[in-house]
């Protein structure tokens, strides 16, 4: 039983990271129609900066803040420099451009900070004992921080006028223009928010995995699976999908077969999608002539 609990908690902790990252992806996708493949590698740049600061004796919390700021800045620069010139509605081109950005960012990180794995500090040390099992406080913190971040995002989108405006622009860019909303400004805010969430999730993930330039590729793929599972346009879907993937992944590794966990997770996702092509929470669009 205690093993089940351990597996469950660490699955939820991983799932919280995927969910947070997926939330960032969904926010950016809804606002600008860009599937931001470069999000993970931009967050990696932020992590390296945070680590450098930490090595110079800066408090970890400030480091996390720096990671968020760097990631957001890099993301906004990328958007203005190479995504916006593509024009509206270039779904595939934008995706491929972000792939290109991701290749460059990972390589640059490698050449500046080296390819050797580095350790990323825990935000908090220690563990909690519970019936023979030790839960790392870091895992619990991960879950808590992710939950708070998600709640804040939820508050922003449902309780504030800015959030309403962002939802409005995501629902219909044309109507938003008629009403007079500045779509560029909202798009920038969405990118900043999405990348900020990515950086935060990276800071939660890195202590466990260590830091190499490609450290965040694996959680990014899991986050992708999560948002497809949940429905590309649904923020709840991103969170629920990420959590599902995290828990499923751990359960599959532990109770089915460690060797076939990718097969299991992705087959499950594809099966769900074959039954519900729009994902669990996605909405179906109807084309009319």
């Amino acid at each position: 039983m205690s093993q089940f609990l351990l597996v469950l908690v660490s699955g939820v902790a991983s799932g919280a990271v995927y969910g947070l990252m997926g939330l960032g992806l969904v926010i950016i996708y809804r606002a600008t129609d860009v599937v931001n493949f470069a999000m993970a590698s931009l967050a990696t740049l932020g992590l390296y900066v945070a680590l450098s600061l930490h090595d110079r004796g800066v408090a970890t919390l400030l480091g996390v803040l720096a990671a968020v700021v760097i990631t957001v800045t890099a993301g906004l620069v990328v958007r203005e420099a190479v995504i916006r010139p593509l024009g509206q509605g270039q779904l595939f081109s934008a995706l491929v451009v972000t792939m290109g950005v991701s290749l460059i960012a990972e390589s640059v990180a490698g050449s500046i900070w080296g390819n050797q794995p580095k350790s990323f500090p825990n935000l908090i040390d220690g563990s909690v004992r519970w019936s023979g099992a030790a839960l790392p406080v870091q895992s619990l913190l991960t879950i808590a921080v992710a939950a708070v971040a998600m709640a804040l995002v939820g508050y922003l989108f449902t309780r504030t006028t800015l959030g309403s405006a962002m939802r409005a622009a995501a629902e219909s860019a044309d109507t938003a223009r008629v009403v007079g909303l500045s779509s560029q400004r909202l798009a920038r805010i969405s990118w900043a928010l999405g990348l900020g969430l990515a950086a935060l999730s990276a800071c939660l993930y890195a202590p466990r995995s260590g830091l190499v330039p490609t450290a965040l590729v694996a959680p990014l793929f899991r986050a992708f699976a999560g948002i497809f599972l949940g429905g590309l346009t649904s923020m709840y879907g991103a969170v629920v999908g990420g959590l599902t993937i995290g828990v499923l992944d751990n359960m599959a590794a532990n109770y089915i077969s460690a060797s076939f966990r990718d097969t299991f997770v992705f087959s499950f996702t594809v099966l769900v999608l074959l039954i519900r092509p729009q994902g669990m929470f996605g909405t179906r669009t109807f084309q009319r002539v």
């Binding site: 093993q3 597996v7 751990n250």
Partner: peptide, 19 residues
């Protein structure tokens, strides 16, 4: 005891080792 390549979460592994 086989572990999936590039696993980062060793919680389940350790509990199996303990067992």
């Amino acid at each position: 005891l086989a572990v999936k390549y590039q696993t980062t979460d060793y919680t389940p592994v350790i509990s199996k080792v303990k067992a």
